[in-house]
């Protein structure tokens, strides 16, 4: 199985540990992983700002880097959703996966050699959840399920909690986080408060952008709660 690891631009630059954990995890599970060296960005930051009409070069670069693999896997629900919905190439759209859905749906992971003896609060990032249906949504009348909690349950020692509002947005929202700074920060503070009420050590999610936003708020208030991408936990060992 030839898997290309898609490392979103901001993860590459600011959160290399998320990409490293993704790579190691996939290899551990038997995938032959390639990291295309000339990859940059999925185009989402521009498109969600209303500039989808100028992302042609970015789309082409993505296609050049990612053609010819069985699967394209990335640790970011929102970037993957953008590609699935808007990338011009149908093969790309069909073969791109968010890493947790890839683990559950394609690799059909039943166990993991992971150990993470901490209490974590689960943040369901909207694009992964509502867009990719990584988990059920509280608005819908449907049977509850979650690929994230399924995976966390495979990790020894890990105790996870939902915040009181199980799937409310954290307020990152791409450029929203600066153009609508006041609302964005308030949304983030409210999420964090519910996690803190649960006395968690880390806020965990499958989208680094949401985590970066919440981490920024946590650090400003000198909180001792940290953030972790879920792959860092799935790849953690004793």
């Amino acid at each position: 199985m030839r898997v290309a690891l898609f490392v979103p631009c901001y993860i590459d630059q600011f959160y290399p540990q998320v990409a490293i954990a993704s790579l190691e995890l996939l290899e551990k599970l038997g995938c032959e992983v390639t990291v295309p060296a000339q990859q940059t960005c999925c185009g989402q930051p521009m498109a969600n700002s209303g500039f989808a009409h100028i992302t042609g070069g970015c789309d082409t670069n993505f296609e050049t880097n990612f053609s010819g693999f069985d699967y394209i896997v990335g640790p970011s629900g929102s970037c993957v959703l953008h590609l699935k919905e808007h990338h011009p190439d149908a093969k790309i759209r069909a073969s791109v996966y968010e890493i947790c859905e890839f683990l559950v749906d394609v690799l059909k992971v039943k166990s993991l050699p992971a150990y993470f003896p901490h209490k974590v609060g689960l943040h369901q990032s909207c694009h992964g959840q509502r867009g990719l249906r990584i988990s059920s949504m509280t608005e819908l009348n449907e049977k509850p399920f979650s690929k994230l909690t399924y995976l966390l349950d495979l990790v020894e020692g890990c105790e996870w909690k939902y915040p009181e509002r199980q799937d409310e947005c954290c307020g990152f929202g791409g450029t929203f986080c600066v153009t609508e700074e006041a609302v964005s920060v308030k949304m983030g503070q409210d999420r964090i408060q519910e996690h803190q009420a649960n006395e968690v050590e880390y806020i965990v999610g499958a989208d680094t952008s949401c985590l970066m936003h919440m981490e920024g708020i946590l650090k400003r208030s000198a909180s001792n709660v940290g953030v972790k991408h879920i792959v860092e936990i799935l790849n953690a060992h004793a």
């Binding site: 509502r130 929202g173 791409g174």
Partner: peptide, 9 residues
């Protein structure tokens, strides 16, 4: 249209 995070709720 920009007063939203596109969360989809």
């Amino acid at each position: 249209p920009f007063a939203s995070t596109l969360c989809g709720s």
